[in-house]
Amino acid sequence: MDEVKNIQTIAGGFPGDVHQTPTGGVLTSRLDDVINWARSNSLWPLVFGTSCCAIEMMSTAAAKYDWSRFGFEVARATPRQADVIIIAGTIVNKMAPVLKRLYDQMADPKYVVAMGACATSGGPFFYNTYSVVKGADHVIPVDVYVAGCPPRPEALLHAMIQLQEKIKSGMTREQIRDEMKVA
């Protein structure tokens, strides 16, 4: 009988089993799981910083926090090459159509992280303003929200890891929403 060994711990959460054989080993898994696993570990973010949160995003990319440890370091300047858009900062009425266009230009599958209070809900600019969009989810669908004004780099890292978990679970944004509706 083959020895079934889950190699999750040794291969960064690889979703499969290793069956030891005398000549080496056989690896079994579902193709969908492997694709999601690969996808979650090479998320390319779009360089999209509108205000203060962009500085904390830069801090996350820089030496001390170093998001390349998790595979996010390939920040792209064009939406056509990006997988995830990190909305770092306030979205105002004039910027909203631009954000929508950037999102439309990204290739599927695409993900959105709303970083900070402004992108989540308008934050400090919720009251008494005439020009701020009260949350980026009025414009494009958002996968992960990060609280804070601005969030610490650790918070952004945590959000990105949450996004990885979400991708690995294999469900789309719409599927998760439907599931929550049933519950």
Partner: peptide, 15 residues
């Protein structure tokens, strides 16, 4: 300009 105009001056009038 105006892509990050958050109407801060107007906001200050009510704070």
């Amino acid at each position: 300009l105006g892509y990050i105009h958050r109407s801060i001056e107007k906001m200050c009038e009510s704070l």
